[in-house]
Design a protein around this nucleic acid. Sequence first.
DNA 1: ATGCAAATGCAAATCGTTTGCAACTGGAAA
DNA 2: TTTCCAGTTGCAAACGATTTGCATTTGCAT
Lengths: 143, 143
Amino acid sequence: MDNEARKLREYEQRLRDEGVRITRPRRAILQILSQAADHPDAMELFRRALAIDPTISLSTVYRTMKLLEDKGEIQRHAFAGGPARFEQAAGEHHDHLIDIDTGDVIEFHSERIEQLQDEIAHRLGYDIVHHRFELYGCRRKRK
Amino acid sequence: MDNEARKLREYEQRLRDEGVRITRPRRAILQILSQAADHPDAMELFRRALAIDPTISLSTVYRTMKLLEDKGEIQRHAFAGGPARFEQAAGEHHDHLIDIDTGDVIEFHSERIEQLQDEIAHRLGYDIVHHRFELYGCRRKRK
DNA sequence: ATGCAAATGCAAATCGTTTGCAACTGGAAA
DNA sequence: TTTCCAGTTGCAAACGATTTGCATTTGCAT
Ligand SMILES: [Mn+2]
Ligand SMILES: [Mn+2]
Ligand SMILES: [Zn+2]
Ligand SMILES: [Zn+2]
């Protein structure tokens, strides 16, 4: 079941069609992104990429993330404090809850809130282009 | 009606009671903050402060903002892209809509959304410590 | 295979913010 | 009031994340 591999090749082809050259560093990064289940930052992507392509540079990681962001392939998040973190734009929209003790990032979605956002913006005479909705909290202790 | 002046003196006293020395630079910054109707960043605060105390330094602006933040006197916002921006913590809680064309910051509040946040966090087993909720949009054109 | 624009690695630059340090000062105590 | 010293300052240098200039490679259309 190398569904993984096929999906990756499709991914690469989609970009090639958009005029993006598939280079060795980019191939490594795409592979990492399609496997990642978390929200790695540039340095973490760099570390993971080194394991695949030992000649890759941090600049290239940054340049590639900007490229992919422009192409709409990834999303960039700037959670409180830390450096930018990334994730594939594949799935549907969701927001994040960050565990301030562990740093864990939990995804959630509330259609209710998304609707309310539109209402609020509309009432103020605006059209929402994008939004940032992050909850910062800690595990509820006791019962 | 120098209500302004009285409020400022109260402000200073409150801090003094918390063990904060009221120095010349701090007095200038407090005055600026209590007058500001917008969300200035450190450099803008520095500019405004220079008009009151020509010897103030940018470092002191930064140090004072951190101090006031710790004392709960101001709120620090990190809107997309730009540098940190500040505002007095006086009023009640509100969130922001940023006009991506003009940079204007519009305040709003939705008790509904605040409640939903708690529900969501609770469902995920968390207690919210703070949150970030920003809408980015542009003025709705046409009718 | 060939050619060339696009992409790379490296080092240096940038931006917002923080910090070390020696000089200065608020305000409690005498 | 004067004294005193921990708290505060300005300055310059350090910082972390990200971007950029440049000379050198490389993907890939021909
Ligand atoms: Mn996510
Ligand atoms: Mn505000
Ligand atoms: Zn959302
Ligand atoms: Zn809110």
